[in-house]
Design a protein around this nucleic acid. Structure first.
Lengths: 212, 212
DNA sequence: CGCTTGCTTGAGATTTGTCAATCGAAGTGG
DNA sequence: CCACTTCGATTGACAAATCTCAAGCAAGCG
């Protein structure tokens, strides 16, 4: 069900655009085709990953195949914290994705730079707990759309790089429920569907206080 | 509904039992009666907190009062990471609780010590996302009981310092559902209720693969 | 042009929530 | 010491939300 190729292509690049780690930590950009694995649960951890373009999903599986996506990472974002010695999660490219691998494992005082990023991740995860634990389907989708819009610069038009199944596995819903909520928001005039993976927010205020 | 006193008593103590921060960071233990606030959302963040005895809940509220507890912290555990500049969460003593306040805010290279703790918190939060997003009521309660048992040394007898409402708000369930699941586990012979806040695990294996 | 794959829609089943009554332990005052 | 009150927990009956299963639709691709 979650089959994947393990192909990726390394592309040498001169300098990292990742400001915090720019002093000699520049690394080549690796290219991952859609659906390929970036790291797997149980693998030895070490580097962080900076998304140059594309999108990444980080998830965990139950024994019977149920999946929870804990986070999406878009261009410009850094991930790979979900690890102590070994990874506790899987990371996959959703679409064709370029990732800069930051091999900073041994770096002595990088932790001062890393801590704020880790804390931001912690806060995001705990806010997502509120969504999954206490909000209903329409509130979850609203919160998701607001978040995606913000991360794309707050524009009215929002691109969704992921499938309905990915959205469902992120929000703890089935694809059918996600689909019905999209329809409901469309019928209410809150959003306009421009395509399967593109939509326009027509009533941002309504969306905002749905997602609280 | 979540009313609370803001009384606490400072108790001077010689030295911190918190190994990582033992070199001059010893702080007095503050005492918080049951239900009192340790910090509030929006407050300026800074110190970390080490639970000496008792138990703490960290939570967030929606505008209409719905509450999600993101974590419980028992004796020996450290919390207070859920912050960048200001706290995004509330923390309250569940019972009479002693907390050592670790004022390490300015400490230059403390981040090297803190990062592993923050990452552990991040992993815990993301594992909890799987529970809230993809597990049903009985699986959630099973996972909770297994976790509580582990944190109390893996003994068969487990003490629950919190109310059913706290458990519900942690697991994303109502108190009625929590209560029904406890009854169901009791009827199946998986647990034995010794009191409202104390139980014995009779079939650990069953509980373990319920919680996956 | 016809597949394939992902999405949408509908009908019915299941789980969980809501509302209400009762229980029971702990604490209070007579 | 006992009756009374209170508050949290349990239980039941019913309602609502979400899931499951199945059918149909549509965009993208060979």
């Amino acid at each position: 069900m979650y089959a994947q190729q393990i192909a990726h292509i390394d592309v040498p690049v001169k300098q990292s655009p990742f400001a915090l780690l720019d002093e000699g930590w520049a690394q080549p950009v690796s290219f991952f085709p859609a659906g390929t694995e970036i790291y797997a649960q149980g693998e030895k951890a070490g580097p962080l990953y900076h998304v140059e373009f594309g999108a990444v999903r980080v998830y965990r599986l139950l024994a019977d195949g149920r999946r929870q996506i804990s986070a999406f990472h878009l261009a410009g974002e850094t991930f790979g914290f979900e690890a102590d010695a070994t990874h506790h999660f899987f990371a996959e490219a959703i679409n064709a994705t370029g990732v800069r691998v930051l091999r900073i494992a041994g770096a002595a005082d990088m932790s001062r730079q890393l801590l704020p990023l880790a804390l931001k991740g912690l806060i995001r995860a705990q806010e997502h707990l509120l969504v999954l634990g206490r909000q209903n389907a329409i509130e979850r989708v609203a919160a998701f759309l607001v978040d995606m819009a913000e991360r794309q610069g707050g524009l009215r038009q929002v691109e969704l790089p992921m499938s309905r199944m990915d959205i469902g596995d992120y929000l703890g819903l089935t694809i059918e429920t996600v689909s019905r909520v999209f329809t409901r928001l469309k019928d209410k005039g809150v959003i306009r569907l421009l395509g399967l993976r593109s939509l326009e927010i027509l009533k941002q205020d309504v969306l905002l206080d749905m997602g609280e």
